[in-house]
Structures are given as C-alpha cells and as structure tokens.
C-alpha cells in the first residue's frame, strides 16, 4: 500500500467514550490508517452510538444519536470505529431505533450507513486486505475478544490475524476467553455484584497468563477489567488493539 494517500477516504467514528476518556485510541487509528495510505477525516457532528440509552430501555433518548450518526457519516463510503460494540450497535440497533422513530427516511438512511460501517479490524483485513500492518510491539500480551465484537459485529478471528503479524509480540492465550467480562454497559452499575463477580474471574484469567498488557477492541470492557486489575495493583496495562497496530519499530526508537 503506497503511503502517498492513494488509499480510500475514511471517516473516523471515534465513539464518545474514546473521545472523552481514551483519546489515544482514535489517535492511533488516525496514525495507523494514514500510514496505510488512507485519508482520514473526523466529522465533528458525531457523538455516540446510543447504546447506553437503547440497552437501558430508553429508545427515545437514543434516536437523536441515530440522526447524528447518519448526518455525520452518510457522505462516506468507509466509516471506521475502534469498537466492536459501538459498530455492532450501529449495524444491529440503529435500523430498529429508526423504525421506532417512525421516520421512514431515517430508517432507510440508517440501514445504508450501517452497511458502510466497519470495526477497525474488519476494515484492515477485509477492505485494505492487510494483516501485516508493519507494527512492532515487543511485549507479552493477552487478548480478550469482547462479546459484542464477536457476537454482534462478528469480527471473527481478524484481531488474532492482525496480532499474529505484529513484530516482537508474544501473544498468550487467555483461558475462558469467550466468557463475558461482566461489563455490559449499564449492567455494570445496575447489577454491580454480578458484574464484579464476572469481572473477577476475567481478571484472574488475565493474571494467570503473565501478560504485561491486556488487549481488547473495546475500551469500555477494558475499562471494567482494568478497574478491577488496578484495584488489585496487578500491574497489567490496558491497551486497545489499534494502539498496538499503530506502533512501529521506527516509532519505538
């Protein structure tokens, strides 16, 4: 892939939690995609996928998010976000919410925009058709496949394909990787005891790998597991998949 911006024009869907809490992740997406020849744009009208509202039962509060999303992104062929969960919500829930709003135009537009929305791992493997992104990350890591990335966005083994090509990286298998970490959006505060019980098992499995870094494709789940690990002073660092893929040998020197 030539680096002189011959690649596609991509709209970055940063997601609200990354915007406010974890800006290094969308910055890494910019770095990575520009390195791979894409032109990255950030439509300012974007806010949130609305999942917080939808999954708590407040459809009416989520509808403005669907409108924002369509407005911000409808002119782009490729919309890329660093979150299986938010991308999954756009694809799986936005059409339902648009139907709920009774706005036929929004229902049509949200379906079209959803089809052009990709998780970063999907965009790299399926659209750019690259698994070796030239990344360098000489650390022992373990990867937690977040539930919505696997079961809603259905990113499959793409993150593993990408991680396996990272130079210097030592990927350790996470026991019971397919079990939910217990975050679950507002589940984490509406059912905190069960959420923490699930998270405690996930954190124990993460510790058992001896990894320096815990990698996921969703910073919300990562925030939950890290919240538990940090309380234990476990000394395991959280990192988003995109931030590993953005690092290069030249950058490390």
């Amino acid at each position: 892939m030539p680096s002189d911006a011959a690649g596609p024009r991509v709209a970055l869907f940063a997601t609200c939690i990354n915007d406010v809490m974890f800006p290094d992740t969308p910055k890494a997406v910019v770095t990575l995609l520009e390195r791979l020849g894409c032109t990255v744009e950030f439509p300012l009208e974007q806010t949130c996928c609305g999942q917080l509202f939808t999954n708590t039962g407040y459809y009416d509060a989520a509808v403005p998010n669907v409108r924002n999303y369509v407005k911000a992104f409808e002119s782009y062929d490729y919309i890329v976000g660093p979150s299986g969960s938010c991308v999954g919500a756009v694809r799986h829930q936005h059409p339902m919410l648009a139907d709920h709003s009774g706005d036929a135009g929004l229902a049509k537009a949200s379906r079209e925009v959803a089809l052009r929305t990709y998780d970063i791992s999907e965009f790299l493997v399926d659209v750019l058709q690259v698994t070796d992104v030239g990344a360098y990350f000489p650390h022992r890591v373990t990867y937690h496949p977040t539930c919505h990335s696997v079961r809603v966005a259905k990113v499959g083994d793409r993150p593993y394909q990408l991680l396996s090509k990272v130079k210097g990286l030592d990927l350790v298998a996470l026991p019971d990787a397919d079990q939910c970490c217990g975050f679950g959006g507002t589940f984490s505060v509406k059912n905190p005891d069960v959420s923490v019980a699930m998270g405690a098992d996930k954190a124990r499995n993460v510790r058992s790998t001896g990894a320096e870094y815990l990698v996921t494709g969703d910073n919300a789940c990562l925030m939950h597991i890290t919240g538990l690990l940090h309380r234990e002073r476990a000394g395991i660092k959280p990192i988003h998949l995109a931030q590993i893929l953005a690092q290069t040998e030249a950058g490390a020197r």
Binding site: N55, F183, G184, G185, F187
Partner: peptide
C-alpha cells in the same frame, strides 16, 4: 430483563 450483560451467548 436487566439480569443480563447482553453478552449474546
């Protein structure tokens, strides 16, 4: 209905 993390399994 809230007794689920919506993990989808």
């Amino acid at each position: 209905p809230y007794a689920s993390s919506l993990c989808g399994a």
